[in-house]
Design a binder for these strands. Structure first.
Lengths: 316, 316
DNA sequence: ACTTTTACTGATAACGTTAACATTTACAAA
DNA sequence: TTTGTAAATGTTAACGTTATCAGTAAAAGT
């Protein structure tokens, strides 16, 4: 494989001139530049990134840190990793997927996802040493990217209200996670800002599984009679739809049902689910951009919320 | 950040001895080794992979090549990328995601997925220069890893036959792709090897969408009366189940339905789909292992088929 | 006591590139 | 011509590591 020395020898100029021709073509005489470019084309020479890295003191490699508590093969995580990878690839960066955060000289920046509390301390230390970006909003940091869960549910609730519904229920999770609280708050705020009332029997708790959605829907119908159900996730919504079908309640005619996530299942349920699609591709792109910008001395001044869009189906 | 020189200075030995302590600890005197290890621990020194790469002539980076015809954010592709990444990370390799195949010194090996015919020529050239592994079986190469689609459908058909079904239909795709033909053949061979008959009206063609499955199921029921339907994909199976529900045909009581893929939707349909789960995680691991083995001079002698397993649901 | 072997350590150069400084060339102004 | 200046190019050293060869000290064999 040709090196810069070969090109220098072929063109009769010094390696330094070749280096300049590659990195600062505007300061090389056109004639020389043409000769060099011809030689580069003829040999198929490509800069050796390793040697370049050594002198430049950067690796063009990003550490993608995902604690082992998170399953990297889960569709949600995988799609994010994949879009980070695609963007980094376009920016000329490679990535190392790590399940432990060790700081060394082998990467230029960090993208971390799915951290829990104890991981955040580690992350803080790491981000003092290297550019680091977090997937998921946090009050401790400014360098994060997240989906705006609050706005997502708010928009969906608004959308349902504008369809004429006034008796709207919410089925969602109740464990300690930012996004869980944000989705619920989005619902509550939309309801009250449109002058509707929030009665406690219209709010039901369910884990993020189809079965839990199914059960929760049963409990909801026993204590209230809504015409629409806003679900915190698609899985819950799917369970919900099954529970309604079991009771011969037609969706969307007798009951509107909405989801949140849009990882694919919205298309496979009948009727097709009206949902809020998580913009995972955009998240990956922003994370990659953020870390590379940060490496290039343009750190993010504040967190970035990406607003998800409603993906209309037939269930509302 | 500490370098090998710092460790040498701290311990009073030469950088070469430190290097040996890190790479061939068994040839360094125990006493010296302990001193060096203590210094390494104290400083948090980690070998600089870039410098190591330069002298070793390898990069510890793998090119993951996915032609731009394939959507890298699609769940299927994303999960494979993600498991490749995880395995490579464990093996100490990083990866560069590329949408064009350019051969240079910046990676040690190639994993390619989703190639079409013209890409295969490129791949052949590349694999002459660098260790390269293909995702997807091919007669032109020996260095590939694939899911055994034939065995998957064969096992599922067998499973259904053993449940006592004799009138079994097949709904699948008909376009030119290895896996399409393999799935169909798996069905046909299972049927005939159990002495059952294959009548053409029991074989229906459908694209890989829910709607196509829905329509195909209608056509099937108009011309045949099976008690079980083997579908080439989960999407088709889901469409099929909806078509049956529409006609008040109970699944699995009056009709067994099976799918293939297991990307998640098998859980979100009611009843839960009995399907063949694509072992994407294993595929990623084998691809990563194969390329690293190949780099280390142990190239794969023949293609590897990974046998998928039946994931029982409630639809059979 | 001498050689031979073994175990361990060190000095130097190299990997392919770029930074920093030095030099040459070209050409305009004096 | 000479000088000054800008444009273009060259030289050397360095980045952090390991390969190669060379050495030393201790142990073992004669």
């Amino acid at each position: 494989m040709a090196t810069i020395k070969d090109i220098a020898k072929m063109t009769g100029c010094s390696v330094m001139t070749v280096s300049r021709a590659l990195n600062n073509p505007e300061i090389v005489k056109k004639e020389t530049l043409d000769k060099i470019r011809a030689a580069v084309d003829a040999t198929g020479y490509v800069q050796n990134r390793v040697a370049r890295s050594l002198i430049k003191g950067c690796t063009f490699n990003i550490c993608v840190y995902i604690p082992s508590t998170l399953d990297a093969t889960e569709s949600f995580v995988a799609q994010t990793i994949s879009s980070i990878g695609e963007r980094l690839g376009n920016l000329g960066y490679s990535l190392s997927l790590r399940r432990k955060l060790v700081i060394d000289d082998n990467f230029d920046g960090i993208i971390a996802a799915g951290l829990n509390i104890e991981d955040e301390d580690e992350f803080e230390k790491a981000s003092a040493v290297k550019p680091a970006v977090l997937y998921g909003n946090s009050e401790r940091f400014t360098n994060w990217v997240d989906v705006n869960n609050y706005r997502g549910i708010y928009k969906m609730t608004e959308y349902i209200i504008k369809k004429g519904h006034t008796k709207i229920a919410y089925i969602g999770m109740d464990y300690h996670a930012h996004y869980v609280a944000q989705r619920k708050q989005g619902f509550l705020d939309a309801i009250t800002s449109y002058g509707l009332e929030v009665s406690p029997q219209y709010i039901v708790t369910a884990d993020n599984t189809e079965q839990a959605g199914f059960d929760a829907c049963g409990r909801l119908l026993a204590q209230a009679s809504p015409t629409a159900i806003v679900c915190a996730t698609d899985l819950i919504a799917v369970g919900c739809i099954h529970a309604l079908q079991r009771r011969d309640i037609k969706v969307p005619l007798q009951m509107a049902v909405s989801g949140f996530d849009g990882f694919g299942i919205e298309n496979t349920v009948f009727p097709k689910l009206t949902t809020i699609k998580q913009p995972l591709y955009d998240v990956g792109v922003r994370l990659a951009d953020a870390v590379v910008d940060s490496i290039n001395g343009k750190p993010q001044k504040h967190g970035i919320y990406i607003e998800p869009e409603i993906k209309p189906g037939e269930s509302v």
